[in-house]
Simulated assay, not measured.
Amino acid sequence: MSNGPHAKLAELGHTLPEVVPPVASYVPAVQSGQLVYVSGQLPSVEGKLLATGKVGAGVSAEQAKDLAQRCALNALAAIDSLVGLENVVKIVKVGGFVAAAPGFTAVPGVINGASDLFTAVFGEAGRHARSAVGVAELPLDAPVEVEVIVEVS
């Protein structure tokens, strides 16, 4: 399947990371019927956050956009381990959370880091509904968190 999601990720210069272990009492992803719900993913690599702090004060919007892309890669790893990326029919909904400094309002642009990756990997099937919310705090002082709902075959 040379044109599948794994090949597209490689073409984009990405490899799927290991599934991020939960930091509390939950699982990374769960399937119910044809939907997979992915728990909120933080921008971590090998168990370590790539950055901490508030976007707009210590974490730039551009850096946060890259961190949102990392969250999306971690979400794709969770999906792949549960059902396989080749079984994704549609990215249905993305929820993005940004630990925003007071006055930082460019939250949607940050979450584009995740949304753009999903569209690049899945094409039209990667276009989705979305929420992008600025919050006071995120777990472990992460700047960004992304959750995803996908339809699978």
Rank of each mutant, 00 (worst) to 15 (best):
S2L: 15
S2A: 15
S2V: 14
P5G: 08
L9A: 07
A10N: 11
E11G: 15
L12F: 07
G13F: 07
H14I: 07
L16W: 09
L16Q: 02
L16P: 04
E18V: 10
V19P: 14
V20N: 06
P21L: 13
P21N: 07
P22I: 14
V23I: 14
V23M: 08
V23E: 04
S25Q: 12
S25C: 09
Y26G: 03
P28V: 07
A29T: 04
Q31P: 09
Q31H: 05
S32N: 13
Q34V: 09
Q34D: 15
L35W: 05
L35S: 07
L35C: 02
Y37D: 11
S39G: 01
S39V: 04
S39T: 12
G40N: 11
Q41E: 08
Q41N: 05
L42T: 01
L42D: 03
G47V: 02
G47M: 05
L50T: 02
T52C: 05
G56P: 11
G56C: 10
A57I: 07
A57Q: 15
G58M: 13
G58D: 12
V59Y: 10
S60D: 12
A61L: 08
A61F: 00
E62H: 04
Q63S: 12
Q63H: 06
A64H: 08
K65I: 06
D66L: 14
D66R: 13
L67N: 02
A68C: 03
Q69D: 04
R70C: 09
R70E: 15
C71Q: 05
A72K: 07
N74R: 11
N74S: 10
A75H: 05
A75G: 12
A77D: 02
A78I: 03
S81H: 13
L82A: 02
V83M: 03
V83W: 03
G84S: 03
L85N: 02
E86Q: 07
E86G: 04
E86T: 01
N87S: 04
V88A: 00
V89T: 10
V89Q: 04
K90P: 00
I91N: 01
V92I: 01
V92A: 01
K93T: 11
G95N: 11
F97D: 06
V98L: 09
A99P: 09
A100Y: 01
P102A: 06
F104D: 03
F104V: 05
T105C: 02
T105A: 12
T105E: 12
P108T: 03
I111T: 03
A114W: 10
S115A: 15
L117A: 05
F118G: 00
V121R: 01
F122L: 08
G123T: 01
G123Q: 07
E124M: 14
A125Q: 12
G126Q: 02
R127E: 14
H128V: 00
A129T: 13
A129S: 15
A129W: 12
A132P: 03
A132C: 14
V133F: 06
V135P: 14
E137K: 14
P139F: 13
P139C: 11
P143G: 11
P143L: 13
P143Y: 12
V144G: 08
E145P: 06
E147Q: 13
E147W: 13
E151Y: 00
E151H: 02
E151F: 01
